[in-house]
């Protein structure tokens, strides 16, 4: 049963407890200065963004079919059955294709390090494997961030939208975006007004490259026969020409 996070922007009070919980879980420093940064970075894996009187969280969406994991040449990123997309820093060679490929611009890099790693939220894989909720969900005092089974959270989101139709924009972000994500958003206003990308494709992104990559065996087999054949013909022609030339 894949896990998910439901973030309800209408409940969020912008207290940033999720940021603190996340920093503690990763062992990252957290103070007022870092709290004031409203962008995710290698030292801040989740953030609360202010959009007028509305709030919005940014964290890894842990996509159902993650572009980052599909593009990683060394398989350092893996989608787990539990839901989180996990990262093995010991494999990573730092090509940063995951950062380029991510439609949500989530992966961040330790730019100033001499031996840098990529950093991103992994939806508290160890905590969730041990049956605990994510650090952000545990820290949230108002239930704006909720962690649980994805199906149950989708049902709950639908129920909230149905019960208070005038308080919610009637859509759930993350249901079909890039083929579905583990983080689901509901909000009072259309999602672009709380800083979410609404121009992302509704299909899983790995398909875009796989369509071409799966042709590699075709190119190799057809190509080698074709080129070998052409070589054989031109070579034969040269041989024949040479023999005939000698006889004359």
């Amino acid at each position: 049963m894949p896990k998910a996070i439901l973030y309800d922007s209408t409940l969020c009070i912008g207290c940033r407890a999720c940021e603190g919980g996340c920093a503690e879980r990763w062992g990252l420093p957290y103070n007022d200065k870092i709290a004031a940064e409203e962008t995710i970075s290698a030292h801040k894996l989740t953030t609360v963004e202010t959009h007028g009187d509305k709030f919005s969280r940014r964290l890894c969406m842990n996509c159902a079919q993650p572009a980052c994991a599909s593009v990683c040449p060394v398989g350092a990123l893996q989608k787990t059955a539990l839901g989180p997309v996990v990262y093995d820093a010991s494999k990573c060679m730092g090509c940063r294709y995951c950062m380029q490929a991510c439609p949500f611009q989530v992966p961040t890099y330790e730019w100033s390090s001499r031996l840098p790693k990529m950093r991103k939220c992994d939806m508290c894989y160890e905590r969730q494997s041990a049956g605990k909720v994510t650090a952000c969900a545990e820290a949230c005092p108002v239930g704006a961030t909720k962690n649980g089974d994805r199906d149950a959270l989708v049902a709950e989101a639908r129920q909230r939208l149905a019960e208070k139709p005038d308080q919610y924009y009637q859509k759930i972000y993350g249901i079909s975006e890039v083929g579905g994500t583990s983080v689901l958003y509901i909000s009072a206003v259309p999602f672009e007004q709380i800083g979410l990308r609404t121009n992302v494709p509704q299909e899983p992104l790995p398909e875009t490259t796989w369509r071409v990559l799966e042709l590699v065996p075709d190119v190799v087999s057809t190509g080698s026969v074709l080129l070998g054949g052409i070589w054989w013909i031109t070579n034969r022609r040269a041989e024949v020409a040479k023999k005939e030339g000698r006889r004359r």
Binding site: V74, T209, V212, L213
Partner: peptide
């Protein structure tokens, strides 16, 4: 770690 893709495979990756 330039050599990593030779040992650690992900054939679904264009970079691979």
């Amino acid at each position: 770690r330039l050599w990593h893709p030779l040992v650690m495979w992900n054939p679904r990756s264009v970079m691979f």
